[in-house]
Amino acid sequence: MPSTETSELSPVAPPKSPSRSRWRSVGVLVVLGAAIIVLLSQGILHSLNYFETVDQALAQRSSLGTKVIRLEGVVKPGSISRTSNGASFVITGSKDRQVFVDAHGSPPQLFQADIPVVVVGHFTSSTSLDFEGTQILVKHTATYIAAHPKRVKAPNGTTR
């Protein structure tokens, strides 16, 4: 029906004054950007987390079952022992929550006691607190301290 189409295309009012709409657009853009940032900062989207901490994993122990997860904790000093196909050790969370890990494959160069690690693997059964790891990743902290502290001076002149 060409007649109705042409009637719908009758001249329309010109767009509003550009300067006002420009300011409005800047305002709306800023608000939209801020809204996205605020939403993301509210700690939603937990499943974008790279790993579960020992505390989290133990809290939801029953629902995790033997699903493959990445488990994070600090390697307990004195618990590391070499096994025939890798290493076994204990990782701890807050308070004395801990998980025994039996990991295959060679651990990375920095693997040692008292360092945070992320172990890829699964719990051995749906109730046990033993974790079977297929890969160990060392999660390094953002702290840098000299290996021989006595030789280094801090920016304010004190020796650490």
Partner: peptide, 10 residues
């Protein structure tokens, strides 16, 4: 909302 908003404006 963001994409519709940006689209309308720009």
């Amino acid at each position: 909302v963001a994409y519709v908003g940006v689209g309308i404006l720009l």
